[in-house]
Simulated scan of single mutants.
Amino acid sequence: MGKKIIILNGSPRKKGNTSSITAEFIKGATEAGNEVEEFMISSMKINGCIGCWKGGKNSEHPCAQKDDMDEIYPKYIDADIVVLASPLYYWNISGFLKNAFDRLFAVAECDNYKNPVKESILIMSAEGTGFEESETWYDNLEKHMGWKSIGKILCGHVTQPGDTDGKPELKQAYKLGKSLNTNH
């Protein structure tokens, strides 16, 4: 049986560079027998975390706020691997992804503030190559949440949709997805 993988895609472009990379990852991961579901966060109604500390009372709807995060929560809880995908915006992940990620805290509230342990992957695209701050944030997930990073695909020097065509990061994303089998 394959892994359950969710992708939280923080790009506002459904056919942009970040999505072209996730598409190759999905192709490889599904060919390897994994179950993959991608959430295009920018097209979902997701409020920001309001720091109310009122979540965690209902594992089916962990957050006190009711919005499209209710579609993500059950898939996140069941996922073996969480892929965080985003374009680089001002040297960090997009606000769309950060907003959704912050809201995952409600799941930790369901288990005495313990985050579920996941394997994770970071996929990013950018006009330049200044991924350092995003990588620091991502690497801290392992340090603070116990997650295990199993890969990063960082594709620089892309701006317009289609700029990833022919880039080696597309093959890297496919290979990473394909490598995720039941023996991983």
Rank of each mutant, 00 (worst) to 15 (best):
S149Y: 06
P87Q: 00
M1E: 15
I50T: 04
L170A: 13
H61W: 03
P62R: 00
S19W: 01
I46Y: 05
P168F: 00
T30A: 15
I72G: 13
S19T: 05
K14A: 14
G151A: 15
Y90K: 05
I5D: 14
H157W: 05
C49L: 01
S59C: 07
G95A: 13
V82L: 08
W147M: 08
N92L: 09
K54P: 02
K4G: 10
N140Y: 15
G130M: 12
L97G: 05
A79K: 02
G146W: 04
K148V: 10
A173G: 07
L176D: 04
C49P: 01
K66S: 11
A79R: 00
N140R: 15
K148F: 10
G55V: 01
E35M: 01
C52F: 00
M145Q: 05
G151V: 11
E38F: 02
K27A: 07
E37Q: 13
N9T: 09
L170E: 08
F131Y: 10
I46F: 03
K4F: 14
K114Y: 10
L170V: 04
M124S: 10
F39S: 01
G177M: 07
K15W: 09
L180S: 00
L141I: 01
K15H: 14
V107E: 15
E31S: 05
T159C: 12
V117M: 06
K175C: 12
K75M: 14
I7T: 05
L97A: 02
L122T: 09
K167D: 05
N183M: 10
P62V: 01
A106H: 12
I81G: 07
E127C: 11
E31F: 03
A23S: 12
M124E: 04
A106I: 13
L8A: 07
L84M: 11
G151P: 14
E38A: 09
G2F: 08
A29F: 09
S120G: 08
E127P: 13
A23M: 05
G33P: 05
A108W: 02
I123K: 05
W147S: 13
V158L: 08
R13S: 15
Q160F: 12
E109F: 04
G48I: 02
G2K: 12
K178A: 11
P116A: 14
M124T: 04
G156S: 12
E127N: 13
G10P: 00
D70I: 03
L170K: 15
L176A: 06
G95M: 03
N17V: 00
N17E: 00
N112I: 09
C155F: 07
C110P: 09
I46H: 02
I6E: 08
S59T: 08
T136W: 13
E142D: 14
